[in-house]
Amino acid sequence: MTNALELDRVEVVYDDFHALKGVSLAVQPGEAFGLVGESGSGKSTILRAIAGLAPVASGTINIDGQSLSKRRDKAFYRSVQMVFQDPYGSLHPRQTVDRLLQEPLAIHGIDDQERRIVRALEEVGLGTGFRFRYPHQLSGGQRQRVAIARALIVEPSILLLDEPTSALDASVQAEVLNLLETVRKARKLTFLLVSHDLAVVAHMCDRLMVMQHGEEVEQLLSTELSARKARQPYTQKLIEASTGFRR
């Protein structure tokens, strides 16, 4: 079986900063893969490199066995979509939800817009009452639902999730995580989820990679993480820290 997503020794270099130092990973179709690390570990850079938003210096990225060229084509953007961390920053402040959802359909020349927009809103649990609102009329959780609807409306097979719930309250986080699980099941999506929260990754993903300073620390199964069976001391330290303060 070909991998849905494959990275081979990918390096990303910003002007004088080596953000990613040769990272390789493979994700199977329908799998949920997690990336864990602290700030500056390069976990978000991986998503940006796949999406074509970060300068890849060397290495290859394959989607469904096809190597990506430097310039992504439209077909790529129909199969890979991304949800950003900050729901306040990822929606255009001057566009209604309707307009936000219409844009991807217009770009890809998909007709049947009316029905698709209504269906997309229903899928993420927002009624049509939200359709003509501006982002500032929505709460953080509602914005993130709109962002998910926008990503799903072009029917991608791979969803890149960059800390999708870290800006949300705990109770809203649970709702959004549940929503993501539901759509993943319904659409057989492949997830690449970035988070600093080990519990979130363990809950959502099958496998994960721990990162530090732009490099892989180790890859392990979520079950191993939950059982606290990490091989590397850095992972152990992260697990320790996530349990809270101890006097």
Binding site: S171, Q173, A174, L177, T182, H203
Partner: peptide, 23 residues
């Protein structure tokens, strides 16, 4: 109780879907 409950927990029995807060 809802707040405590709705957070994913490492190592605890995994709950799918997570319980949500019914305000």
């Amino acid at each position: 109780r809802g707040l405590l409950d709705c957070m994913p927990r490492l190592g605890a029995a995994d709950r799918h879907p997570l319980p949500t807060l019914d305000r």
